[in-house]
């Protein structure tokens, strides 16, 4: 299969500007268009090793980020387009890359329901797959990025997708979104982290995305069996701990952090029940990232070699 890296710069720019760049992202195909050089360079950095879709494939999501006309360009504004219509207000062009990534998340959050979709990161090492649900600010993405830089395969930073009545996770690897201090934290954590464009003064502060497909199997489509569910919480002044948590409370919390649990009604309840019955649930309270990574390592590898 052809990778984005096989395209020359001019071929990539040609596609982004005209017919669209068709990328295979997990089970979905996006067609991406942009006329913004900043966005183009972000895509070429962060999606370099993504597979291009087969020619003539069915496109799931048409997205674009465009600055149209002289007036919009002079004002430094751009639009995110989905299905060629604009679901949101114009945004400052300097933040366009972050909005492209959010827009691509939004497509999956809102428009697919064949899976139970948890708002969660998912990572795997060997045959051990972990789902990490988290509220914004809980440190889910920071931990996910650090695990990705420590040999874990990132299955998703945002959507853990579970086919109902299985305990499988469908991989949907996309760049990891990092905010504010966590950008520096990850840069200090590893010099191997590769970042895309930095978007400043967004409603979430400073945002940068990290290349997530660092593992040789990052783009394999095969589903992976979830073994553990970890609820990370960054807390500066608390004792760090990895402690078991109740299944019923984990059920409710994971359902609360789901995009479509409620929409799926009985199917959602049964899907969540199957999942929770078959994973072990933990709370992970941390402030030191190295400690947290070791704690997660210990789940996959209960007796580490000295």
């Amino acid at each position: 299969m052809q990778q984005l890296a096989n395209l020359s710069d001019s071929e990539l720019n040609q596609r982004l500007a005209f017919e669209g760049l068709d990328l295979q992202v997990g089970p979905y195909i996006y067609k991406i268009k942009t006329n913004l050089p900043l966005v183009g360079s972000g895509i070429s950095t962060l999606y370099k090793n993504f597979n291009l879709a087969q020619p003539e494939a069915f496109i799931d999501y048409n997205v674009a980020i465009l600055s149209k006309g002289l007036l919009q360009r002079l004002r430094g504004q751009s639009d995110f387009l989905f299905d060629n219509t604009n679901p949101f207000d114009s945004i400052p062009t300097g933040q366009a890359y972050a909005f492209l990534e959010w827009g691509m998340n939004w497509c999956v959050s809102l428009h697919t329901n064949e899976y139970l979709k948890l708002h969660a990161a998912a990572v795997a090492r060997g045959d051990h797959t972990i789902i990490m649900p988290g509220v914004p600010g809980a440190g889910k993405s920071t931990l996910c990025a650090a695990l990705g830089l420590s040999g874990w395969r990132i299955l998703s930073d945002e959507h853990a997708m579970i086919p109902p009545n299985t305990t499988e996770v469908v991989p949907l690897c996309r760049p990891v979104s990092l905010k504010n201090e966590s950008i520096g934290v990850i840069k200090r954590f590893s010099s191997n982290a590769i970042f895309g464009p930095v978007s400043r003064e967004t409603h979430k502060g400073v945002v940068a995305h990290m290349k997530a497909d660092l593992h040789p199997q990052s783009h394999e489509k095969k589903t992976l069996k979830a073994r553990t569910m970890v609820f990370p919480r960054y807390a500066k002044d608390e004792t760090q701990r990895l402690s078991p948590r109740r299944r019923t409370e984990s059920f409710i919390l994971a359902a609360y952090h789901s995009f479509n649990y409620s929409l799926l009604c009985e199917t959602g309840f049964e899907a969540m029940k199957t999942l929770i019955e078959n994973v072990t649930c933990y709370d992970l309270v941390y402030h030191d990232l190295d400690w947290a990574v070791n704690a997660v390592d210990s789940l996959a590898d209960p007796e580490p070699n000295p």
Binding site: F88, D89, F99, W102, S109, P136, Y256, F259, N260, S262
Partner: peptide
């Protein structure tokens, strides 16, 4: 409308209530 719309993007990741 400007503010109504902006809100929808800010809430883009807000998980649904159950």
């Amino acid at each position: 409308r400007h503010f109504d719309k902006k809100e929808s993007l800010e809430n883009e990741k807000t998980p649904e209530a159950i």
